[in-house]
Amino acid sequence: MVKSDQQLTAPPFPLPVLSPTINSVESAQADGDLAIALRSLSAWYGSFQALRDVTMAVLRQRITAIIGPSGCGKSTLIRCLNRMNDLIPGFRLTGQVLFDGQDIYSKRVDPVDVRRRIGMVFQKPNPFPKSIYENAAFGPRINGYVGNLDEIVERALLLAALWDEVKDKDKLHKSALTLSGGQQQRLCIARALAVEPEVILMDEPCSALDPVATLKIEDLMRELAQNYTIVIVTHNMQQAARVADSTAVLMMNEDRAGELIEYGPTREVFTNPKEKRTEDYITGRFG
């Protein structure tokens, strides 16, 4: 499945028309498209502030890209959305992350429940050193899903466009580490999908992959966006331009804390940025 260079730069699909005011949590809420709302989110690792006062809306069944130069807090931001940073000693945050109107950092909320509903795919493919089948079945197993596990596994692998490559009985039960990097990453996506999350977070999912595998994942993301809300961190601006409906640009302020400097429909951000810094970053003059 080789694509021409032309298609690499222009998205092979029509981008949905979004109102230029999507960064307003209120308007998204009014339209009923709001999946996750961040309100004045600040985050620290020990005494180092990684994020300052980020407020943005993540729209339902859309792809939201977070871009920005290295060290600007992109990964920190996406990991705040499913409380992944809780695992890091010394991490703390202020502000709110509202998912379906509920603050996921509220004391009554169990982070394990949050992560069941908001799945995650990581930078480096990280399949468990188990069989392909067991990888896909891991989430349903630990979450006590009832039903035919074979079917759940098949469905997840189908959704992740991996089924055709692994459907042989002996292939399916081979170690996931026998797969190529791109296949491993799709397996990780399948593994996340098997839990039936509502949102999928992807932290630079293609940074360890070659261009062909990258395109496959991007196609898959567009496919999945029909049913899932996707947030992707990427250092690749072309990727954001190709797949994302809306794009957020983070940048370090003078204290090295990440701030949201621009957020809007991807086309707006790339063709008509409001901020000079965004334009400099996008055109490669900085970052």
Binding site: L87, V112, F122, K130, F138
Partner: peptide, 27 residues
């Protein structure tokens, strides 16, 4: 055992005990 494996399991809604018993110990 790489931290990324633990994160993978936490990301699927595993709790500490499940991560330890089903991912870390087997690996």
């Amino acid at each position: 055992v790489p931290q990324t494996l633990r994160e993978g399991a936490y990301g699927l809604g595993a709790n500490r005990f499940e991560v330890a018993l089903r991912v870390v110990v087997p690996a």
